[in-house]
Write a protein that binds this DNA or RNA. Structure first.
Lengths: 225, 225
DNA sequence: TGACGTATGTTCGATCGCGAACAGACACGC
DNA sequence: GCGTGTCTGTTCGCGATCGAACATACGTCA
């Protein structure tokens, strides 16, 4: 079972050996909610090819995606900062596998395991940048550019050029109406950058999509491929 | 010299005693830029009554405030996460005093000083929530509500009901045009919530302003007064 | 006192995204 | 094969904000 998760991969071999017994493989399926805001964090997750969205919930019903966690990161980060409840909703946006660990074991491991702590710190920084960039992006860039960015980020994390997502779902992620997504998507399609039908999206021209995306995409590339 | 900064205040007396020799008092003045994105972090700052804005810079010239640091926090947090350069611009938005420490000493102290590490972790979590909330707020709430929230957050950190700020400056913080601020501000003034002239803003009715502000203000109150 | 710089106020048309409603089109189950 | 639910496409009027331009008012300093 190769570990593709970057946080785990950054742990030194000796430390990693002590971590392994705590890790179990979990299959996350689309639509699962790992936590709602305020939920106790019982497990932390290190995605391999799963993809989890972090959503800030406002006024109990409005939700906006502020971060996206794939194999470059982990879910349940708050636990590493000494907080036992999740501040956000964590929604599985792309099904796949992830390594799971009890929050308790994770907390203990952090104290005994400097390379894990370092890897988690580095990811914390990355996530903070991602959230900050998203904030600015939502303010300054229009829907087509944000959609293009979102598709590219998803692509990179799922490592696939096609995936299943409806306009309705995308609307929730981007914080716009479904119709807004339809308009933006059909514009991208007109340019032959993507193709889609009934929840199935295909990226046809990745370089072209990068041009259509705002600079935020490049600002948030992770270093390792 | 009483320490009002919450991060430093959370450090245990024994640990704090070892920290003191490293700290020097600094006066931050309005308009100072502590770091630009990419700048090496040479010092970290723990504001007492100064107020620092964290701005994400997009496309080299657009900037949006994503966080606000007063005595509840610290500036240069990235250094605690193992990153030596600042990801954001840190702009002094309210002059005042802060405790300053070299980044090197800070880094060393973190390793030797568990209560400092815990306090920094807690603040990291708070900042992450603040940035996420700001992202959602910018998407869902209109300018008058955001302005009201911003004024209240500033008030809490400066601990004063009046301060000097122009509409132009506020526009940069909120990511809107100056005219948009003027319109929103005059609406708040019409309701007798605030008063202002030529860069001097007075909060007349704090409870009323809280009602005018979006829920994001309450979502981000720090526990300790 | 007068001139200049800065801060605020007002207006204009344009654009973007909103909420709502309805129309087709595909997919799956009976 | 047919009905039903889901997904996408289109339209409409509305409101918020934009960019730009210009008008007014205050303050400072020569």
């Amino acid at each position: 079972m190769p570990i593709r998760n970057h946080v785990l991969a950054a742990v030194s071999p000796a430390d990693y050996a002590r971590l392994v017994p705590q890790l179990t493989q979990a299959t996350l399926t689309f639509g699962d909610i790992l936590y709602e805001p305020g939920d106790r964090i019982r497990y932390v997750y290190f995605p391999d090819d799963a993809l989890v969205s972090l959503l800030t919930v406002v006024d109990r019903h409005l939700a906006l995606e502020v971060g996206m966690v794939g194999r470059e990161g982990m879910v349940g980060l708050a636990r590493a900062l000494g907080v036992v409840t999740s501040p956000m909703r964590a929604l599985v946006q792309g099904g796949g596998t992830a390594w799971r660990m009890s929050a308790m074991a994770f907390h203990k491991s952090l104290g005994q395991n400097a390379s894990l702590q370092n890897a988690v710190n580095a990811y914390t920084h990355f996530l903070l940048m991602q959230v900050a960039q998203t904030a600015a992006c939502n303010r300054f860039h229009d829907v087509p550019a944000r959609l293009a960015r979102w598709l590219l980020m998803t692509r990179d994390r799922l490592n696939a050029d096609q995936f299943r997502l409806t306009h309705e779902f995308l609307g929730h992620m981007l914080g716009v109406r479904r119709v807004g997504v339809t308009t933006a998507a059909s514009e991208l399609r007109r340019q032959n950058l993507i193709e889609y039908q009934r929840g199935h999206i295909v990226i046809l021209d990745r370089p072209g999509l990068e041009k259509a995306a705002c600079s935020c995409y490049h600002a948030l590339k992770w270093s390792a491929k």
